[in-house]
Design a protein around this nucleic acid. Structure first.
Lengths: 122, 122
DNA sequence: CTAAACCTTCACGTTGACGTGAAGGTCAAG
DNA sequence: CTTGACCTTCACGTCAACGTGAAGGTTTAG
């Protein structure tokens, strides 16, 4: 598939896919015309990238981790043991972020309940 | 107190405090010299700001919410009912972020366990 | 009185993940 | 054979929360 189709399938833009390639996250083949050619597995790969990005990992961290993620999401066969430290660091970072989010959400919850709870009868 | 002392107390920098003021989050008094003067409550206010920032709220959202947060953190008395929608939106955003973080952490967990789980007995 | 350590207001620099044209090549359809 | 929808590579723009001097006024300690 070509870049626009992959972008549609994965819910992103051609620009982002070129950026991922520039950062070493994707290595599409090239047609004679110079067009990028992606195999179907790239859809899952891109979804992984987006997921990890939304978790706060930067492209450098994903570039380290991504080669360890096999095509089939559920199988998870050949892991790279050298990266365990990096994985643990990111895991800790994610957990810390979740804790902060939970604390902030508590503040909002108190605000939400403090207001209308007292006297909102309409 | 002056800006450097507040920065120390709240664990941040004078630059950040000036930025918060520029964004309408703080309104310190001014001495005759032009120096900013903060009352002790500002320490808690700044901590709230940092917490909400770390939760992904931007300064505009915090500017809306902050006036509703009373000085005493635990009391939470006079809430602004008009802002309930904004609060709910941010709450949803936070929950969504937490879900994404949890999903990404699951991916990392599978990677962490897939590798050393097979044969790591030490 | 002077030096250190504050403070002030500009105003440009940084970082990351892209957005957004610009200028031009490629390819299937009519 | 030309239109239009693709694609390519630069390369500058964006946004947010500050960092980092620059140039100068203020306050405090000796």
């Amino acid at each position: 598939m070509r870049i626009s189709e992959l972008a549609r399938e994965a819910g992103t833009t051609p620009r982002a896919l070129r950026y991922y390639e520039e950062q070493g996250l994707l290595r599409p083949a090239r047609l004679a015309s110079g067009y990028r050619h992606y195999d179907p597995q790239a859809v899952g790969t891109v979804r992984h990238i987006q997921l990890l990005l939304s978790a706060g990992l930067n492209t450098a961290a994903i570039a380290e981790i991504l080669p360890c993620i096999p095509d089939d999401v559920t199988v998870l066969a050949p892991t790279c043991p050298e990266l365990l430290d990096a994985l643990a660091v990111e895991r800790t970072r994610i957990t810390t972020s979740m804790d902060r989010l939970a604390a902030a959400r508590d503040v909002l919850d108190r605000l939400i309940q403090a207001g209308p709870a007292a006297g909102d009868r309409s």
